[in-house]
Design a protein around this nucleic acid. Structure first.
Length: 1203
RNA sequence: GCCUCGGUGGCGGAAUUGGUAGACGCGUUGGACUCAAAAUCCAAUGUUCGCAAGAACGUGAGAGUUCAAGUCUCUCCCGAGGCACCA
């Protein structure tokens, strides 16, 4: 008998098939198409190992099966050949990477050919082929033109070993996935593709893909959509806090008089207050008191208060200060004008009094703000002293009639007026305008045309506890400055005041500010009005005055609201004021002169925003922190904020961060840390508080501290968070470490706990848990109803999310984990980017007719490590002409990442030689999308994300006709080495398919790989295991040679044959190759017993086996007198008549246990089955006279008797 | 920590979706052939008890639903893969 010699047989057929070109793709438009694709390999220098072909064999089987079923099948292969290893090899051996790449491709191809995979090699492609990468570059240019490509200077992931930047996707645990080197952050200009623009579509379309759930989940995960809100927190640069020093008078001490009252008030206001016991109070020496004052170190934030003799000390002390020294304010209470008179001598007063009195000019250099309090009935220091002092110091002079020497005559020992000078409340004053129509103006109802929106503003501000005055001015239709002034000065106007005037109100405010030299915080002029001529017409003294440009220096913030359809004078005035004051102008279209009928609304949010900005001490909108949160419902619990160390706001000089050095040090530390250190598990959180700034919780108004900490990531969300320690684990941990207050705003919900722990456990632990949470000792991250949240208290969390966001002025948004695609690599072996930098025209794309932009030869492939690619060294290549202006320009020297070509290669197989288009439209329409895509799970995120993005882009520009590239996707399970580890050169456990094929043959190899286990499971290789499939093939070989195949097929065998045909077909479709093979083994085992089968039936068997073992089946197929190629044969059809058994084995159970199996005819009725079952001896034994309670009958399967 | 799969003989793995657990293959043991070995063929092979007929147990552990659970439900343990300070 002829032995099965696999080599002879396999080589013979490989040649014949090649001659007949059987693998060529047929394109018969009448037939249905089937595009089945393998992920193309990177041709490494090591060649294939036994794990690589597993997926290729599977697709080969499907491809053959589909061909036999009459489909046009596209089954191509190519090479993903750009990339680092080829370049590293080139570096080492000083050969061009192309040479190594070509060699590797040749090796791979030879190995694959031995397996007889039915690829149409005429469609072979390589990403490194200029004819191919022409279209990679072309697509890149289209993306550029659509604005999807931009240059970024943000720090990127830099692998110091590969000396190139990497995309986020290229990292593994913060290391380079290629060489495991920890990644550094490096600032080099990078080309980035806005893949995030497609995030939503990529996410949504996952649902229409027939992919494994796990891969879909990875994609969803990677895109990482979360819904939440963006909310602005205003930042308050803490005003340098005032401190107050009190110098008491002669013959007293800080525990007497009104001093303790003041101390208490200062304590309430949180103002630091010092009132030393001055030496020898009954006989003070000036030197001793001045020394005391020296020790207290007053500074520019200090307010000095001096009572009587204490006042003298302060003025004397100021006389002696150096040139640039200043204090904030000096308040003199009943202080003497200390010039020697008959009562006092210099000696007798130990230097308090001098011949010349005070040197007021000198004193005034050290303070701009003096207040003098004096009472006319002062029995100790005459009122005139107060007058002299006030005059000499240009002081604000507060006079009294009955306070005496501010001693015993003082009511309750309190001076409220004094307090008002120290603690100035912020208030807003609204000065209305007036209609020009006198009749209307006289009517109190219509007197102020803008009463309604001013009232709206007032209401809104008062909701935020801001004091608002809205005085009605006397006869504004014929205004008098003095009367206005009298009315106006009844109000408390101080340097924290915000003045808002509209129309003629602005005239008044400007004049008043100019004349009184008052300092205020803000002046907001709505529809400003300056018309000096008007006085003549109205016979008033109101409109004609000189505008004092110095106002600009006394008012921190001047804003003008105007409109494009204001009256001409209004617009002129706005322009004039803008120029004079260098003011900020806000133009709201269509608001006219801000008359209510012109505005059409009483709401004026722009103004409100502006006022609120001033209220918290911020002029510029940018000085706020935008955060992203998924839990806006917990906003009331935000007790601090955290910025990423790289957050741009930190560098904003306006913040005047006090602990700048500490902050910079932390930033450096964070930057030096590798990604690994930063994200290491269980790592303790660190951070630094920004001293001198606070944020305002936009709903509760609370001032909360701001930290920088590296647990907040710069490139997710907004790079800043609101921290809610009570309801977020990370914030909780941080808050505990830095002792920040923890405020619970979500009431734990019993039902939530019951869902998780079950009723009993939940009820038991609920009370203690709840208590701990409310006390801030436990963090509660689940959902519940709101507490401690003003008007939202009691609301459920779903409603609260939106409502609170609304109140905070934020908006609901979506955030993604997906980052934009860092697309440039600083290496040689990749597609050159088709961009040109021109000094005149900026960045210009290479004209499409010049594509492909060929990768030039270079002397050294050595990466520079500086962030420049080796291409930068080729002057004659780099220097080029600008395609737009023809002037000198330079080429972009970065290359594209390896993922570029692989993002669209599958389209090129459809039309691989087309030089005019990426792919012909008609062909694309026919073949696209890929029906079945098979490859490694390691590409679940990167390759598939990039390819889906790239494809969607091509869809958008009309190159492809469907918006997803791969309809169905299946991952291959790894083949592990026999030792259970991954196959790797490192472990020396690599099995080469060539050796296996040599020993066992390609058919055995193919069968074994498919028989090992479920296709997507990872299974260890076993040389012993190969014996099974080999024996299986040899059995079949023998069957022909023992002439089994000349006989008849028994009915039993025919049944098995047809069942097998059915099963193998189904199993191929479901990728259950292992069970398909085992079914064929069953058939062969049965045939081995029967020793007889018709040639026709044997042929059918060979046909269904042929996709698995094409060579031997082909040989035997020809031996049984066929001349055709099996791959061109039709897949056999199974006949239903053989699938039905006429006699079946019925299982008899008693109480659920199998007691007997009886042979019965297939269509047996329940009654008959019961009868037969009860007749069985074995069954009788178990029933044994017991009562039969129930009988369950399953047609064709079993009968179950319950006793 | 979160998500997604899994856990079945000595090993790789089947099991029509609730209906005979262990198909098929490897290995092992015994036998046939042979002077012998290899190859091949035949038989056995979940565990325990038993000469046997047979019985009991048995799909990570424990509970539950059911006439019947590898399959469904709950709790827990272990393994693989993915994500991971993502607000």
């Amino acid at each position: 008998m002829e032995r099965y010699e696999h080599k002879k047989v396999e080589e013979k057929w490989r040649e014949r098939w090649a001659q007949a070109n059987v693998y060529r793709t047929t394109e018969d438009a009448d037939k249905e198409k089937f595009y089945i694709l393998d992920m193309f390999p990177y041709p490494s220098g090591e060649g294939l190992h036994v794990g690589h072909p597993k997926g290729y064999i599977a697709t080969d089987i499907i491809s053959r099966y589909k061909k036999m079923q009459g489909f046009n099948v596209l089954h191509p292969m190519g090479w993903d050949a750009f990339g680092l290893p080829a370049e590293q090899y080139a570096l080492k051996n000083k050969v061009h990477p192309r040479i190594g790449t070509d060699k590797n491709i040749a090796t791979f191809k030879k190995q694959l050919e031995k397996i007889s995979l039915n690829y149409d090699w005429e469609r072979e492609i390589s990403t490194t082929d200029p004819k191919f990468y022409k279209w990679t570059q072309w697509t890149f240019i289209q993306m550029y033109k659509k604005g999807l490509v931009f240059q970024s200077n943000e720090p990127i992931n830099w692998c110091p070993s590969c000396k190139t930047g990497l995309a986020n996707e290229d990292l593994e645990n913060g290391c380079c996935e290629r060489c495991d080197t920890p990644i550094e952050k490096k600032k080099i200009p990078q080309w980035v593709i806005k893949i995030t623009d497609y995030a939503d579509r990529m996410l949504a379309d996952i649902d229409k893909l027939d992919w494994q759930e796990s891969i879909k989940e990875s994609q969803r995960n990677w895109i990482g959509r979360s819904e939440g809100a963006e909310i602005d927190f205003n930042v308050k640069t803490s005003k340098q806090k005032t401190n107050v020093i009190l110098m008491h008078g002669k013959d007293t001490n800080p525990q007497e008089k009104w001093y303790p009252w003041l101390a208490e008030k200062m304590n309430v206001e949180g103002i630091s207050f010092e009132a030393p016991i001055l030496p020898n109070p009954s006989d003070p020496h000036i030197d001793e008191w001045l020394e005391e004052l020296d020790n207290l170190k007053p500074n520019e934030n200090t307010t000095l208060i001096g009572h009587s003799r204490g006042g003298i000390a302060i003025l004397r002390w100021l006389e002696k200060q150096s040139k640039d020294f200043k204090v904030k304010k000096v308040i003199l209470v009943a202080a003497n004008y200390a010039k020697i008179n008959e009562k006092h001598t210099e000696e007798g007063t130990h230097g308090f009094y001098t011949e010349v009195g005070y040197n007021f000019e000198e004193i005034k250099k050290h303070c701009d703000d003096f207040v003098v309090l004096h009472s006319r009935d002062d029995g100790w220091v005459p009122f005139e002293h107060g007058e002299i002092n006030a005059k000499g110091l240009d002081a604000k002079f507060l006079t009294f009639d009955d306070k005496g020497h501010f001693g015993s005559k003082l009511e309750k020992q309190e001076i409220p007026e004094l307090l008002g000078e120290i603690v100035q409340e912020q208030n807003v004053i609204l000065i209305h305008g007036c209609p020009s129509d006198e009749e209307k103006a006289k009517n109190p109802e219509t007197r102020t045309y803008n009463k309604q929106w001013l009232s709206w503003i007032k209401e809104k501000l008062e909701q935020k506890n801001i004091k608002v005055d809205f005085p009605l001015m006397p006869h504004p239709w014929k205004p008098s400055y003095d009367e206005y002034k009298k009315e106006f000065e009844k109000l408390d106007i101080n340097e924290n005041s915000i003045l808002i005037g509209t129309s003629c109100g602005t005239s008044f405010l400007l004049r008043w500010l100019g004349e009184t030299k008052q300092k205020v915080k803000s002046l907001i002029m709505v529809a400003p009005w300056h018309e000096p001529e008007l006085d003549k017409k109205h016979k008033t003294d109101f409109y004609n005055f000189n505008i004092d440009e110095e106002i600009n220096n006394r008012v921190e913030n001047i804003v003008i609201f105007t409109s494009d359809n204001d009256y001409e004078i209004g617009m002129k005035s706005a322009k004039l004021f803008e120029k004079k004051f260098d003011a900020k102008v806000v133009n709201i279209k269509g608001h006219g002169h801000y008359l209510e009928n012109q505005m059409g609304t009483v709401e004026f949010p722009e103004l409100l925003d502006n006022v609120l900005d001033s209220c918290v001490g911020v002029n510029d909108k940018s000085e706020s922190i935008k955060v992203f949160t998924t839990r806006p419902d917990t906003l009331y619990g935000a007790t601090y904020m955290v910025l990423a160390p790289e957050h741009e706001l930190i560098n904003n000089e306006k913040l005047k961060i006090k602990n700048w050095d500490e902050v910079v040090e932390y930033q450096k530390l964070a930057q030096a840390k590798t990604e690994i250190e930063r994200t290491a598990e269980g790592k303790e959180k660190t951070g630094v508080k920004l001293e001198g700034v606070m944020a305002i919780n936009p709903v509760s108004g609370e001032e909360i501290p701001i930290f920088i900490a590296d647990y907040v990531l710069a490139d997710y969300g907004t790079g800043a968070i609101m921290a809610v320690p009570a309801h977020d684990e990370r914030d909780f941990e941080f808050a505990q470490k830095y002792q920040i207050s923890i405020k619970c705003v979500i009431e734990p919900h019993l039902s939530v706990e019951i869902d998780e722990y079950g009723e009993d456990v939940a009820r038991e632990k609920m009370e203690t848990m709840r208590k701990q949470i409310l006390e801030g000792k436990l963090c509660y991250t689940k959902n519940g109803d709101l507490i401690n949240s003003d008007e939202f208290t009691g609301m459920n969390w779903i409603d609260a999310k939106e409502k609170i966001t609304q109140k905070a002025g934020g908006e609901m948004t979506t955030s993604y984990k997906l980052r934009d695609w860092v697309f440039s690599r600083q290496r040689y072996w990749g597609e050159p980017m088709p961009l040109i930098h021109c000094d005149k025209c900026g960045v210009v794309t290479v004209p499409e007719e010049e594509l492909p932009l060929i990768l030039p030869e270079v002397e050294s492939y050595e990466p520079t490590g500086t962030g420049e690619s080796p291409l930068a060294a080729i002057d004659e290549w780099v220097n080029t002409k600008c395609p737009e202006c023809g002037g000198p320009a330079k080429r972009e020297t970065n290359t594209m990442p390896q993922w570029a070509g692989s993002s669209w290669y599958y389209l090129r197989y459809i039309d691989p030689k087309n030089n005019k288009e990426l792919v012909d439209k008609t062909q694309e329409k026919y073949w696209s999308p890929v029906d079945f895509y098979v490859g490694g799970a390691e590409h679940a995120t990167r390759h598939l994300i990039y390819a889906r993005f790239w494809h969607k882009f091509l869809y958008d520009i009309g190159v492809v006709s469907y918006d997803e590239p791969f309809s169905k996707l299946q991952t291959v399970g790894l083949i592990m080495a026999e030792d259970g580890r991954k196959m790797s050169k490192r472990w020396g456990n690599v099995v080469n398919p060539d050796d296996v094929i040599d020993r066992f043959g390609s058919d055995t190899f193919r069968l074994y790989e498919m028989f090992m286990g479920p296709f997507d499971a990872s299974v260890a290789w076993s040389m012993d295991g190969l014996v099974g499939p080999r024996k299986f093939l040899e059995k079949i070989w023998k069957m022909y040679h023992l002439e089994f195949t000349n006989g008849e097929t028994s009915k039993e065998l025919q049944k098995t044959l047809h069942k097998t045909i059915k099963k193998v077909g189904e199993d191929i479709e479901e990728m259950k190759y292992n069970t398909a093979i085992s079914a064929m083994m069953v058939l062969v085992n049965q045939l081995e017993k029967e020793k007889s089968i018709s040639a026709d039936d044997f042929g059918k068997f060979l046909t269904i086996l042929s996709p698995f073992a094409p060579h031997m089946t082909q040989e035997l197929w020809n031996k049984i007198e066929n001349k055709t190629f099996l791959i061109e044969e039709k897949w056999p059809e199974y006949e239903n008549q053989y699938l039905i058994d006429d006699e079946i084995e019925l299982v008899v159970q008693v109480n659920g246990k199998v007691r007997d199996k009886i042979m019965v005819t297939a269509g047996l009725s329940e009654e008959d089955a019961k009868e037969k079952a009860l007749a069985s001896e074995k069954v009788k034994k178990h029933i044994d006279g017991k009562e039969i309670r129930k009988v369950i009958f399953v047609q064709g399967k079993l009968i179950s008797i319950v006793v």
